[in-house]
Amino acid sequence: MRKFIYILGVAALIQSCGHDTPLKNSFEGKIERDQIAVTTKIPGKVHQILVSEGDVVQAGDTLMILEFPEVEAKSIQAKGALESAEAQYKMAVKGATENQLKQLRAKRDGLREQYEFAQKSLARMENLIKDSLIAQQKYDEVYMKFQGAKNQYLAVQAELADAENGSRIEQQKMALGQKERAIGAVSEVDVATKERFILAPQNMTIETINLKVGELALAGYSLLSGYLVDGTYFRVTIPERQLQNLTVGSKQELLFPYLKGKKIEAEVVSIKALNSYANIATAYPDFEQQESLFEVKLKAVQLDDARKLLTKATFILHLDTSK
């Protein structure tokens, strides 16, 4: 019986050593970084790629240039429509040209002469009809010519007034609306043209370039992806019984085995319950089956200390339970 117990003890010791179980109250976690994807709002072909995987870029740096043949065609159309709308608006405000005004004034003077002659003829006919020297038919013909000359003279006067004063206000507003619509179309094309240049939204490290030169970039498709330069954080899984030693805002010391024991001071920024065991970040979490697990997120106190750390590398958090 003693021999059997001894064998079980040795087997347990060997198994424990094989898993390289960490020290008590020490937890292994993983270095993580906030990811970011750079997309395009307008479909186009990749014309030029200005970065390589692994490059560190600043916010506003040009990462990629796209081609938009359709946008260039629309730009020509929009500019042509704007020129036409501007001409229509100027014509509506200014009215007739100087030559058109000269023609209308000459037409007015000619019709005025006809009107005055018809008026004199009618006056003579009135005297003759009183003395019964002419037939009523002859008088009616002269009167009809007088009315025609009068109406033509009044019409050309109104036409000349419109030409001198410009178009009516409704026509001017309509022309102005067409002009503003054309200006909006040009602005829309200018905005689309600027979208050719894919810029870095934040300081980031280029992790993956998903397209090559000549390939089609669809709207919303991830062209490049990477990690935020200052988005490094540390993720570790802690059982509930150890949470008494951790509070949001507390400072903890992290150890990095792959850097030969380098230490970094970090601050606890959040503690949340894990809904799935698949999210466990610690390699060998020491917890009872009925215990809940919590994910603890920490960030380096000095951001420069975390920028060169390798993503997914392991760190060790040791909780001091003596406090």
Results as ranks from 00 to 15, higher is better:
residue 98 E to S: 14
residue 95 G to M: 05
residue 190 D to F: 03
residue 160 L to S: 03
residue 2 R to C: 08
residue 111 L to A: 03
residue 125 M to H: 11
residue 236 V to F: 00
residue 275 N to L: 04
residue 20 D to E: 15
residue 288 E to G: 08
residue 86 E to Q: 14
residue 175 A to S: 06
residue 210 N to S: 04
residue 228 L to T: 07
residue 142 V to H: 07
residue 283 A to I: 14
residue 103 Q to H: 09
residue 93 V to L: 10
residue 295 E to I: 03
residue 215 E to A: 04
residue 10 V to Y: 07
residue 243 L to N: 05
residue 59 A to V: 10
residue 283 A to W: 07
residue 106 A to P: 11
residue 199 L to N: 08
residue 262 K to Q: 09
residue 19 H to I: 14
residue 242 Q to L: 02
residue 200 A to P: 08
residue 216 L to M: 11
residue 101 L to C: 05
residue 297 K to R: 15
residue 132 S to D: 15
residue 24 K to I: 15
residue 272 K to E: 13
residue 273 A to M: 05
residue 170 E to S: 01
residue 210 N to V: 04
residue 146 F to W: 08
residue 259 L to S: 03
residue 7 I to P: 13
residue 35 Q to L: 11
residue 191 V to Q: 15
residue 177 G to I: 08
residue 287 F to R: 05
residue 36 I to K: 06
residue 286 D to K: 12
residue 154 L to G: 09
residue 182 A to C: 00
residue 121 S to A: 14
residue 316 I to N: 02
residue 111 L to E: 10
residue 6 Y to W: 15
residue 178 Q to F: 02
residue 75 S to I: 00
residue 58 Q to Y: 08
residue 61 D to H: 04
residue 24 K to M: 10
residue 32 E to Y: 13
residue 193 T to F: 09
residue 113 E to M: 13
residue 35 Q to H: 12
residue 142 V to P: 08
residue 13 L to T: 15
residue 109 D to T: 15
residue 312 K to A: 09
residue 294 F to C: 02
residue 265 E to D: 13
residue 91 M to N: 11
residue 104 L to W: 01
residue 71 V to S: 02
residue 60 G to E: 06
residue 188 E to L: 12
residue 126 E to V: 15
residue 255 L to E: 10
residue 144 M to S: 14
residue 168 R to T: 08
residue 197 F to D: 13
residue 138 K to I: 11
residue 151 N to P: 06
residue 53 E to V: 09
residue 188 E to Y: 09
residue 214 G to M: 04
residue 34 D to F: 15
residue 246 L to W: 07
residue 81 A to Y: 01
residue 122 L to E: 08
residue 182 A to L: 00
residue 176 L to F: 04
residue 241 R to E: 07
residue 159 E to R: 11
residue 112 R to T: 03
residue 82 L to V: 05
residue 178 Q to N: 13
residue 193 T to H: 12
residue 29 G to L: 00
residue 319 L to M: 02
residue 143 Y to M: 09
residue 157 Q to I: 09
residue 208 T to I: 11
residue 104 L to I: 05
residue 151 N to L: 11
residue 224 L to I: 15
residue 44 G to Q: 00
residue 275 N to A: 06
residue 125 M to T: 14
residue 182 A to G: 00
residue 67 E to W: 03
residue 129 I to S: 12
residue 211 L to K: 07
residue 276 S to T: 10
residue 152 Q to R: 11
residue 293 L to N: 01
residue 295 E to C: 02
residue 123 A to S: 14
residue 276 S to A: 06
residue 264 I to W: 01
residue 201 P to W: 06
residue 95 G to Y: 04
residue 283 A to F: 09
residue 151 N to A: 13
residue 200 A to L: 02
residue 313 A to K: 06
residue 93 V to C: 08
residue 112 R to G: 01
residue 40 T to V: 07
residue 286 D to T: 11
residue 135 A to R: 10
residue 98 E to M: 11
residue 69 P to K: 01
residue 45 K to F: 07
residue 166 G to K: 04
residue 148 G to P: 05
residue 126 E to L: 14
residue 13 L to K: 13
residue 153 Y to D: 07
residue 118 A to Q: 07
residue 221 Y to P: 02
residue 197 F to Y: 15
residue 231 G to I: 06
residue 90 K to D: 14
residue 164 E to R: 10
